[in-house]
Each structure stands twice: as structure tokens, then as C-alpha cells.
């Protein structure tokens, strides 16, 4: 039973939404940017789940991908760099009846927002967190991000990125109370949509890293990948994602039960192949907004309670 705000919202349930209902402003990303395909998959998901646009909120930070809410016709909150997750947490804590999605870039989530990211995983508030990872700062024109491969030349590290990149899947899996961790790629739209759907349906904080092409700055990182399906391994399972349609294109498949955290961590750590699929999920992990959920009161009831409270301080 989804949380209810008031009896007013118990109507108009028969309305069916199509892709068109979620179309926002014309997207201003570069042609060929992976953000476009994430946007279209998201709109498809919303239509498939028939989410009322007014009951859906997209929260973002700052970066190319954080323009996302402007281009989708729901409520949106385009906030400050790195801090989408606290805003989203506030929305969901106050309004559990809303469907909350968070769109972050790699700098946004993994670098300046790292503290919030770690804690959001632990809070396990029911929302979908999409990390659109193009492994570079694009909006500010090609600076190293925490996920930029070692040795990769950027404007801030012209001799190549000094350190090995951060592994967001591995890091997420290491946080207490992680409940859904998946990786997908925007150039495999069917997989991306299935992953987002599983993420949406998971009750809790669903972390999805979407590998994403940036044709403008890092075309050489992911640009060739669509032509090399052998470099990708699909993690398949009935409780994760198992798409028959992808069998032909991606012959490298590994059966992985998302209930197995140790195995998930082992698979995440091994960087020899790009793994797409659900690494881990546990629907029973405690959710902060559910734990903190409280009954509501009317104003006259609150006055009565407050009088009683004041009695304790009465002289």
C-alpha cells in the first residue's frame, strides 16, 4: 500500500499516461550524448508504471545530467552541486506518497556529494538514484572526475589522471544497509529500462550506475563499446534481470543471484569485464522513511496535545 497523503488523492485513478505526458522542454544536451537515451528510457518507465506526473519528483544536482528534470514533465528540483540526495530525502520523508527519482553525475554523486551518497545508501529511503557516469566533468569542460580512468588526460590533470578510478558499485556494496545495486549502460536501452524498472519496484534506495557515453569529451572511453559486446558480461537471474532479447547480442552471461552479497562484491571488484545487471538486492532491509512514519493529526488535536505538553511546564 503506497503512503497516502489525503483522501483527495484517491480519485482519477483510471487515468492512463503515455510517453507524451512526460515530455518536458526540448533537451539541450549535445547530439549523441547518452543523457538522451536515459531520458527516453525514463519516460518509458514512467508510462509503463503509469505514474501520475504530479506525483513524481525528479531531484538533481549540478552537471550535464542534472538538467534532466527540466526535460521531463513531472515535478523537478534542480538544486546545488552534489546535494541532490539530501533534498530528495527531505521530499520523501515529508511526502512518502510521492515517487522520487534522483539524477546525478559522477562528480555530483561520487565526488562533491560523496558524504550524502554513503548516508543515503544507509538510510535506504525508497527512491531511485541514477548515477549517470560518463567518467568526466562535461559541463565545466573536461576535468578529471573520481571515475576517470587512470592516465586519462584532462584539462586539470594534463599528464593523465593520477589515481586509479573509484568503483561506485564496489563502494555502494560496502555500505551497511545497501539494498539495491545495479549497473547498466545507456547504449543497451532494453537492459537500461529493465534495470530501472527493477530499481523502481524495489522498496528502498535503488542505486543504478548507468555507464554513459560523452561523445564530446570521452568518446574514446565508451564510444567503441557498443561495437564490442564481448567486453560486456550480463549478470542474469530471475530476481535480477534476464532479458531473452539480449541473449544473441551478449553471449557472455553469468548467472548471479542478487541475494548473494559476497559474490556481488567479488564481481564488482573485478574490473576485467564490464558487468551489467543487478549485483545485489534485498527487499527486506529497513527503510528510514518507513521507520520514521507517523500518524497525522488535525489542528484541533494538535492544540489539545500541545496544551498537555505545556502543562508539564506550568508554574
Amino acid at each position: 500500500m503506497s503512503a497516502v497523503c489525503s483522501l483527495f488523492q484517491l480519485h482519477d485513478e483510471s487515468r492512463e499516461y503515455g510517453m507524451g505526458d512526460y515530455e518536458g522542454a526540448q533537451a539541450r544536451w549535445c547530439p549523441g550524448c547518452g543523457d538522451h537515451s536515459v531520458l527516453s528510457a525514463t519516460q518509458r518507465l514512467l508510462a509503463r508504471e503509469n505514474l501520475p506526473p504530479e506525483k513524481t519528483v525528479f531531484v538533481s544536482g549540478i552537471g550535464c545530467s542534472s538538467r534532466f528534470p527540466h526535460y521531463i514533465n513531472t515535478y523537478g528540483f534542480h538544486g546545488v552541486h552534489g546535494r541532490a540526495l539530501p533534498v530528495a530525502t527531505g521530499v520523501k520523508l515529508h511526502r512518502p506518497d510521492l515517487h522520487v527519482f534522483v539524477v546525478m553525475g559522477d562528480g555530483d554523486c561520487i565526488s562533491i556529494g560523496a558524504g550524502h551518497w554513503i548516508h543515503a545508501i544507509r538510510y535506504n529511503v525508497d527512491m531511485v538514484a541514477l548515477l549517470l557516469d560518463n567518467e568526466i566533468y562535461g559541463l565545466t569542460k573536461m576535468q578529471t572526475s573520481p571515475t576517470t580512468p587512470q592516465g586519462y588526460v584532462t584539462n586539470t590533470q594534463p599528464r593523465g589522471s593520477y589515481l586509479p578510478p573509484m568503483n561506485p558499485i564496489e563502494a555502494t556494496l560496502g555500505v551497511t544497509n545497501a539494498s539495491f545495486v545495479a549497473q547498466t549502460a545507456e547504449w543497451v536501452p532494453a537492459h537500461m529500462l529493465a534495470t530501472m524498472e527493477a530499481a523502481y519496484r524495489h522498496p528502498g534506495f535503488s542505486f543504478v550506475r548507468i555507464l554513459q557515453r560523452c561523445p564530446h569529451f570521452t568518446d574514446d572511453l565508451f564510444g567503441e563499446l557498443p561495437k564490442h559486446p564481448e567486453r560486456v558480461q550480463l549478470l542474469v537471474h530471475e530476481h535480477g534481470i534476464d532479458l531473452e532479447a539480449l541473449e544473441g547480442r551478449f553471449p557472455n552471461r553469468l548467472a548471479h543471484d542478487p541475494a548473494d552479497l559476497d559474490e556481488a562484491r567479488r564481481l564488482a571488484e573485478d574490473a576485467s569485464v564490464i558487468r551489467l545487471g543487478v549485483f545485489f538486492r534485498d527487499d527486506s532491509r529497513p527503510r528510514y522513511e518507513e521507520t520514521r512514519h507517523l500518524p497525522a493529526y488535525t489542528a484541533p488535536e494538535k492544540l489539545e496535545l500541545l496544551e498537555r505538553e505545556l502543562d508539564r511546564y506550568a508554574v
Binding site: V57, V59, F77, G79, R83, L85, P86, V87, A88, T89, G90, V91, K92, L93, H94, R95, L98, H116
Partner: peptide
């Protein structure tokens, strides 16, 4: 941030 998100909604 949480207070702002809550206020917004």
C-alpha cells in the same frame, strides 16, 4: 538540504 526538500514538498 533535507529541510529544503521537505519544505518544497
Amino acid at each position: 538540504g533535507v529541510a529544503i526538500g521537505a519544505s518544497y514538498a
